[in-house]
Design a protein around this nucleic acid. Structure first.
Lengths: 235, 235
DNA sequence: TTATTTTATGTAACGCGTTAAATAAAACAC
DNA sequence: GTGTTTTATTTAACGCGTTACATAAAATAA
């Protein structure tokens, strides 16, 4: 019974939506209007984040800056993480820019990949609070935001593009043990990310000096990924 | 002036403490008594954690179970993380046990290391909430607890002991590219940890199927760490 | 007009980790 | 006994993310 009623309601709704008959209630704000408000909220969050650091970004303070109440924020974003997602892109852009700079003057794919891995690690170590914003916010229950696809963000980043191209070139040259570009960048990503997350979050372990652990760890990954004979002298 | 006064106060305190004269105020609880209360608090936290999952562990609920107020908890522990640190040891023990079981029947160091790496990853992937308890609690300001040394915890774990012994044996056999046991286990740790943390926390990326990424990632690390010719057929 | 329906926003609350301030308890000095 | 000093514990609060609920606003239906 309930099922039937529900079905009828859904069908009515679909009919109304599809034929664009006059809706009954207050009309929703246009997508354009909504976007304006969303941007005002994001701008407030960014201002707080840049001015006073991540720990000052609270929903209540964002609301004050955006001239609304905290509840209104939840009308436009699922949760705090959802708002901060939009700041990710800017942080990734910084990372990307620093990576682009890091490969300047390096021509062969292997050197470029090595430089990118090194820079990735150093960027996060030098911006530990940015790292926490992105990787250490517990969302517990909520599923990942389907409208924020990190792979697509990364795809638009020049730094990631350079990595992909270097891997592509490497594959052509028979550089790698594997013949699968996606697999290769995922292996590289998990390994460098492991170094970053270990050094930042596992502070109870007495790690080797940063530079030693970083360099030997990266070289280990590259030796494991690159076919014998292709491993040139570094840099 | 202030400095001088401070110095005098310190000296008085030291004198009193060292000569064991009668103290003026209410005497502190004995270390034994304090330990009893600490254990009661930890037991309450553990009960909540095991019965209802991590998200139910709140300072207020621990306090109720331990029959005191939340503030009292802060008399015996610096913060929530400090209490949960004592649960770490038990989770690490589970991990250790599963690792001990995983190497059963594997004799050569390389196979044993490979088994340990694989089991480490699978343990955390199968116990994601445990992973979050340990690695994803933001402590923001506070420095790492100096009285909880993860390396010493790990040292007492048989699973870690087996890893160290396997590395030791490997070094004797000339198995590894590096000749430094600590460096080797730290490289192994960061790499496997990178896989775990990526798969658990970076959900916005469409990762390769677990088994594929795990296996090729581990093999990459081992190829990079093990000298040519020593890399036997797997398992 | 008035009633109804839907959207947008606000009010007040929940439980959270943590802490300042007050108070209770236990010792000594007088 | 009465104060004094130190420790242990509680009370009450802060700001937090989030949400149930109420209300305002804007449209249609009658």
């Amino acid at each position: 019974m309930d099922c039937k009623i529900f079905l009828i309601r859904v069908l009515k709704k679909v009919k109304v939506m599809s034929t664009k008959e006059k809706r009954r209630g207050r009309p929703p704000k246009s997508d354009r209007q909504k976007e304006v408000i969303r941007q005002r909220i994001i701008a407030s969050a960014r201002e707080l984040f840049l001015d006073e650091g991540f720990e000052k970004v609270s929903m209540r303070k964002i609301a004050v800056k955006a001239r609304c109440t905290p509840t209104t924020l939840y009308h436009y974003f699922r949760n705090k993480r959802h708002i901060l997602h939009f700041l990710w892109e800017e942080l990734f852009q910084q990372l990307s820019d620093s990576c682009v700079e890091a490969v300047q003057g390096y021509k062969d794919p292997l050197s470029r990949i090595r430089r990118l891995m090194t820079q990735y690690i150093h960027y996060w170590l030098e911006n530990k609070d940015h790292y926490r914003v992105i990787f250490m916010i517990e969302d517990l229950s909520s599923p990942p935001d389907e409208d924020v696809n990190a792979t697509s963000i990364m795809g638009r980043m020049q730094g990631f593009q350079i990595l992909v191209e270097a891997i592509e070139q490497g594959c052509k040259d028979g550089l790698f043990f594997y013949d699968d570009m996606e697999l290769i960048w995922q292996i590289l990503s998990t390994h460098v990310h492991g170094i970053v997350t270990s050094l930042i979050t596992v502070r109870e372990i007495q790690w080797r000096p940063d530079h030693e652990l970083i360099e030997s760890s990266i070289e280990t990954t590259l030796r494991g990924l690159v076919n014998e004979g292709h491993l040139l002298k570094r840099y």
